[in-house]
Design a protein around this nucleic acid. Sequence first.
DNA 1: CCGATATGTTTGAGTCGTCAAACTTTCGAC
DNA 2: GTCGAAAGTTTGACGACTCAAACATATCGG
Lengths: 221, 221
Amino acid sequence: MATETVENYLKAIMTLAAESPTREATVSRIAAVVGVTRGTATSMIKKLTAGGLARAERYGGVTLTSSGRRAASDVLRRHRLIETFLVRALKFDWSEVHEEAERLEHAVSPRLLERLDEFLGHPACDPHGDPIPGRAGVVIEPAAKPLSSCKVGAVVRIARVIDQSAAFLRFMAQHGLKPDAKAKVVALHAPAQSMEVEPHGRTKLVLALAAAEKILVHAGR
Amino acid sequence: MATETVENYLKAIMTLAAESPTREATVSRIAAVVGVTRGTATSMIKKLTAGGLARAERYGGVTLTSSGRRAASDVLRRHRLIETFLVRALKFDWSEVHEEAERLEHAVSPRLLERLDEFLGHPACDPHGDPIPGRAGVVIEPAAKPLSSCKVGAVVRIARVIDQSAAFLRFMAQHGLKPDAKAKVVALHAPAQSMEVEPHGRTKLVLALAAAEKILVHAGR
DNA sequence: CCGATATGTTTGAGTCGTCAAACTTTCGAC
DNA sequence: GTCGAAAGTTTGACGACTCAAACATATCGG
């Protein structure tokens, strides 16, 4: 079994890869996500490659091997099932659960995890709309595009919230912007790098495009 | 915040002290409970005393200071609330929860812990009958005596099961010997170091006195 | 009282994950 | 094209925890 630290690096690499499928994960980004210096990340990545979990060429990007992907999606499965459980069963606010899950994900046994999954009725997504990998490591990434890419007048349904900082999530919830909620793009202010959004049945608000990029949506109807 | 390792040593010292209030915890026993060599335990205990969590005189026993006791009962509180939650909410068998809790106890935040406590209705005891320390670190050890000390004919109510190995707990449950269950001592075989016990409404069984020592009971009625 | 054995301590070494700082390579702006 | 900043790597050190093995002390049976 991979150590807790290794699991965190794997998770970081996989989420970075999912975040922008164009570019591979870089040492700097991995270091930033895990919260260590670049040097530490380099040596840890060396360990991952030695263990057959990742591939990296010198001064190049980092990718997971298939066994690395399997291990990483297992961590993600644990993380997201725990988040779902905390929200659904223990009535946590979705802004609180990320850090809790960050620690718990390394302490749950396979048995406990399956119990949670069953208890929750095998959910497909966590409270932020992130897909929960299956037991076999299969992730179904629902096709969704950033809110920032939507045109004025578009009606959309929130699919997923990428930025999971507590402050951002509280702000989102306050305006009714949770997964499955509907909203309309009412204006775009290119010079100000912002857009105006009206959540269904709520007062409209202004979002920086940088923020709107962290919100994935389905074309609504 | 004490490190996970430190927490485990504190827990070991406190449970050893509670187990036999006559003798102080010894280095060997602590090492055995934590699962390290004596040398390791010695140096760790030195660290505890340096940190003001324990007192130990050279070649003498180990005791917790008041702040050590507070920290230790906090760990115990977490451990036992988690066990209770796993059994009550997630339908785990009481023989399965010890190891789960052993890992989870280091990963729950104070916030999550209070949520659990509330969810469970502030339970006083865990599934094994072990008292759950209060938030302030107060432990109410219910007066109970080992089953092995009971006379023939005594009717008792199970208070607490000290031996928490999965095999022993499964055996106990199989015979209806769980906390609050009633049983009668039907015979004592001193030469064989065993006793015969009849759980209420069940067929009687033979227990080694060493095993009966690990079962605490109230004088029944 | 004495010695064997159990118990406690010290030492030297190893692993894991980390940092700071020096160093190397890459890459984009000019 | 080159030069400087950004990104990646290496090195040496450290803290936390552990072990094995040599050593010191205590204690119990006779």
